[in-house]
Design a protein around this nucleic acid. Structure first.
Length: 271
DNA sequence: CTATGGACCTGAATGC
DNA sequence: TGCATTCAGGTCCATA
């Protein structure tokens, strides 16, 4: 479900509500992708200081130097409310605080909640250490992007998804950014010219920023922590539009498989 | 080092 | 209606 825009929209929807809250309890459901890593009772009495994002991870800074990393995986969703119903079969993590409860609901359980001793801890480095540039930040520069692409011989779509060059671009926005840049998803990254790489860099920024502004994409069930659905899917140029006319040239949109994932593109507009 | 395929897990949609 | 197959927003890990 969640790529960078959905994670960022989720963050914005509850960060200011939970900041300053004192943690009362942690409730755990079924195991997620990784174990919490620490005894949850150590959080009791501590405060949530801030909520940041790195790639598709949410980072909750907790007093006493603790860091709570939350990943939504494919089907995860956060809810923050003063009162939440009793946990259902897919509610696997509750952070109960004086200001409300933050709940991770995740049917497929590819998501995770991990407690670490800061970003430089073993677990922090393991999960965050290989992440690429933040596409909406200052550090996502033309030179660095081009240099990184030169070293990669895989198709550009898969390089974008890998997340070690640039983070946050998932299956929807990879197809969308490549369409806007006019680049075939199968093009080897190393063979993209500097001019086209720059166009791609700007397309990535624009697509992600616009998606955040639209509240993300709600394909089946995404909603932010206050329950709001996104509507960027209405602006999708190619994703999920197999056989439908390209919004630029009218040619039917094509779908192909790359590394077990669907890719959508226009064979006329993307070369 | 890079590239590729399998693994994890559940529910919804599709096909016979 | 019932049952099997395919697909879904991610990414880690083992293997070439």
């Amino acid at each position: 479900m969640p790529e960078l825009p959905e994670v960022e929209v989720t963050r914005l929807s509850f960060a200011h509500h939970i900041s300053g809250a004192r943690i009362l309890a942690v409730r755990l459901g079924k195991p997620l992708r990784w174990p919490l890593g620490e005894d949850p009772s150590i959080l009791e009495g501590l405060r949530v200081i801030a909520v940041r994002r790195r790639g598709k991870y949410l980072l909750l800074d907790v007093s006493d130097g603790w860091l709570l990393l939350i990943h939504l995986g494919m089907s995860g969703r956060l809810v923050f409310a003063v009162d939440v119903p009793p946990p259902g079969p897919h509610d696997h993590f509750d952070l109960v605080t004086t200001l409300g409860t933050l709940r991770l609901h995740d049917p497929r359980r590819f998501g995770a909640a991990v407690l670490a001793r800061g970003e430089e801890s073993t677990m922090g480095v393991k999960l965050l250490g290989r992440l690429g540039m933040e596409p909406l930040g200052e550090g996502f520069g033309a030179n660095d992007f081009q240099t990184a692409l030169k070293r990669r011989h895989s198709p550009i779509k898969q390089v974008l998804l890998a997340g070690d060059v640039v983070v946050g671009v998932g299956n929807i926005y990879a197809s969308e950014a490549l369409f806007r840049a006019g680049i075939r998803p199968t093009t080897r990254a190393s063979r993209i010219s500097p001019a086209r790489a720059e166009r791609l860099r700007l397309s990535i920024r624009e697509v992600l920023a616009r998606a955040v502004a639209s509240g993300g994409s709600t394909l089946r069930d995404f909603s932010s922590a206050d329950g709001a659905a996104g509507h960027f899917q209405r602006e999708a140029m190619v994703y999920g539009r197999t056989g439908e006319p390209c919004r630029h040239c009218g040619t039917p949109v094509r779908m192909l498989r790359q590394g077990q994932r669907s890719t959508f593109y226009c064979a006329v507009c993307q070369t």
